[in-house]
Amino acid sequence: MKRTIAIAALATAALTLTGCELGPKQSVQNGHRGTGMDTVTLKKVALAKDEVPAPPYDPPSTEGPRAGAAYQNVQVLGDVSEEQFTYTMAAITAWVAPEQGCNYCHNPENMASDEVYTKVVARKMLQMTRNINTNWDKHVGTTGVTCWTCHRGNAIPANYWALPEPGKKGIIGNLHGQNAPIAATAYSSLPNASLAIYLSGDAKSDKSIRVVSDGMHPTAANKLTTMETEPQYALMMHLSQSLGVNCTYCHNAQAFKPWNISTPQRATAWYGLRMVRDVNGQYISPLKDAFPAHRKGPMGDPFKVSCATCHQGKAKPMGGYKMAKDYPALWGAPTSIPAAVPAAPAVPAAAAVSTATH
């Protein structure tokens, strides 16, 4: 009888440890032994090879007439060579609309026309891509991004979100966005408005994520309630699922709050959250009137990006492949869109020094 109970207990423990994500795991030590500093990933995701399309043809010359002089109404890539321009357009077609081709964005009888809404959107997305590659190097580094990073051959990226509808009522009244599992919160019962709270607005807005209390008892300076922590935990679950990692990828198991003992990835994530907020606030939300109804959420806002849009289950999109190096046209000035990157704060900067050992 005791053996039966012991076996049942072990089986329950195994299910508890693997209940969040099914499938074999890969564990890599990233801290001192016995500290719980192991990065755990799903093998099927971590080891899967990503499809990365090759350039449409050999990289063209950067010399020669500028695209802005050769073509009409070129508002973003006018500073690159004519050859670079057509090379980049060919790549974008394969990345976003391989079946529809150029006509997905253009009127074939007047390529300069802005009458097709997707061209207006694409122009804004090119500005966004240049802004990310030029001004958000503290997150994307020298790897950069291309349209493929998010789209992967689809007109609409597979992972997006929109503002949730106002609290729906259940048997016990207003659910306040809870007990309605969605992918954005790793199908938890936590509030589904976490992305709207932390990934919208602008890069400089004060939306700090602080779930650790500053003291044992509530005081005038320490009023963090359980209700306030719930959307923050929901966002952390979103990050974990989007990158395919556990908490210790960024945080130290000894103490989650201090920056000086966190991993360098925490600082990278700090900039990443603000970069996503910048993308949604500065580039996507202003396109509200351009998008048709079928590309908007229930509240009439455009589909927005999250960490999952680029990462798609991996700590580094496409395993860190430096695809953007083949497309220098995507690294220029964003054109008429000011940079909005906040200066590095003193505390997160401390995380740049790794205390992890291997």
Results as ranks from 00 to 15, higher is better:
82 E>G: 08
105 C>H: 07
88 T>R: 07
56 P>V: 01
62 T>K: 10
66 R>L: 14
60 P>I: 07
112 A>M: 12
88 T>K: 02
62 T>M: 14
65 P>W: 00
61 S>E: 11
39 T>P: 02
68 G>Y: 00
30 N>V: 14
75 Q>I: 13
74 V>W: 00
25 K>P: 04
72 Q>W: 03
50 D>E: 13
111 M>I: 13
26 Q>C: 05
94 A>Y: 11
55 P>Q: 14
87 Y>V: 02
23 G>E: 02
70 A>W: 03
96 V>C: 10
80 V>C: 08
96 V>D: 09
97 A>L: 12
82 E>F: 10
46 A>L: 05
73 N>E: 12
46 A>M: 07
73 N>A: 05
95 W>Q: 15
50 D>W: 12
93 T>F: 09
74 V>G: 04
74 V>R: 02
61 S>C: 03
83 E>V: 01
49 K>T: 01
22 L>Y: 06
113 S>L: 06
57 Y>I: 00
31 G>D: 09
79 D>S: 15
66 R>S: 14
105 C>D: 08
88 T>S: 12
80 V>K: 03
83 E>C: 01
83 E>P: 00
39 T>D: 11
39 T>K: 13
35 T>P: 08
38 D>I: 06
51 E>N: 09
48 A>R: 13
46 A>K: 09
34 G>A: 11
107 N>M: 00
30 N>M: 12
103 N>S: 15
48 A>P: 10
98 P>I: 12
53 P>I: 02
74 V>D: 01
81 S>V: 02
106 H>A: 07
38 D>E: 13
40 V>I: 11
27 S>M: 10
90 A>C: 06
63 E>N: 14
29 Q>D: 08
58 D>E: 07
49 K>Q: 14
107 N>F: 08
28 V>G: 03
84 Q>H: 09
86 T>G: 07
40 V>Y: 01
57 Y>R: 07
77 L>W: 01
42 L>T: 09
61 S>R: 08
41 T>I: 12
79 D>V: 07
79 D>N: 11
109 E>W: 12
96 V>F: 10
71 Y>Q: 02
77 L>H: 02
71 Y>P: 03
89 M>G: 05
64 G>I: 06
48 A>K: 13
108 P>H: 14
27 S>D: 04
65 P>M: 02
112 A>W: 13
54 A>D: 14
38 D>L: 06
77 L>N: 00
66 R>H: 11
75 Q>E: 14
54 A>H: 12
33 R>W: 10
96 V>A: 13
62 T>A: 12
85 F>C: 04
102 C>Y: 09
30 N>Q: 08
